[in-house]
Nucleic acid binder design. Structure first.
Lengths: 138, 138
DNA sequence: AGGTTATTTAACCTAGGGGCTAAATAAGAG
DNA sequence: CTCTTATTTAGCCCCTAGGTTAAATAACCT
């Protein structure tokens, strides 16, 4: 009965209402009432959606008087992104380039600080590297 | 009845069997029989899963004699990644750093042009800004 | 205490998802 | 044509997801 975390997270994301709620929460923490306002739907329905999102680890909830403010919780998003990473090479062409760019910038940053300025000019394109690369993101 | 693309994609990803199938396909194109082999499940069940994945745009299928080889299809993965990008700032530190760096660079650029050089030392925290930001990946 | 606001729980309904078995289709192989 | 292999379709179950309304909590206000 209890789905694995990734399954319940994806399941939670499969509903447009819930994704809209998350989009709203991306703008900042807010109450159930305000979250419910845009939808033509009863409050219990929204309450259920929030429970699903919370159980999926996509949001967390606090308590302030009679309000239960909701906010984005990063963990499950991170897991989804991580899982997606296994497939990124199938579509993200700029993945390698961006990755290279990041390293370059980091190197420059370091160069400034250490004043050692080892010049990076080479890009990597190898495929094997995909596997061994320490995640730059996540 | 017809869910929006993102919803059916997330729904397709919400099943561990289907994710396992995708993981197998990440290793390369293969037949239904071979995809079914690891699972203690009837072939029709697998067939249904494949149909769901195909309808979600996560795989595509060819025809070779009596086989219908399946392979990863990039489009829907890309869409998921794109959607996820709206939330990346919530967990990806390197994303924020990149974002900050980009803004800094832009600011320097502007400074050069306008020759007004208002020194930027502070990182943005405004929420509104998030909306107008063009995606870095995608 | 009694009232108002915010949110959840309970009980119910319906549609669709994921599984099965049996049968149908598609395409090579003899 | 017939046989075998690969895959899908057709029904049939059962259970859960998402919605509803009515009632229960929770916490503030007077």
């Amino acid at each position: 009965m209890p789905l694995d975390p990734l399954s319940s997270t994806f399941a939670a994301l499969a509903d447009p209402t819930r994704r809209a709620i998350l989009a709203r929460l991306a703008l900042g923490e807010t109450s159930v009432m305000e979250l419910a306002e845009p939808f033509d739907m009863s409050l219990p329905a929204i309450s259920k959606h929030l429970k699903v999102l919370e159980h999926a680890g996509l949001i967390s909830r606090g308590r302030e008087a009679q309000w239960r403010p909701c906010r984005i919780a990063p963990a499950s998003f991170r897991q989804v992104d991580f899982w997606l990473g296994n497939f990124r090479r199938f579509w993200d062409e700029s993945f390698n380039r961006l990755d290279g760019l990041l390293e370059e910038m980091k190197a420059e940053e370091v160069a400034k600080v250490t004043a050692k300025a080892s010049p990076r000019t080479k890009r990597k394109t190898s495929v094997d590297k995909e596997k061994q690369r320490g995640r730059t993101r996540g």
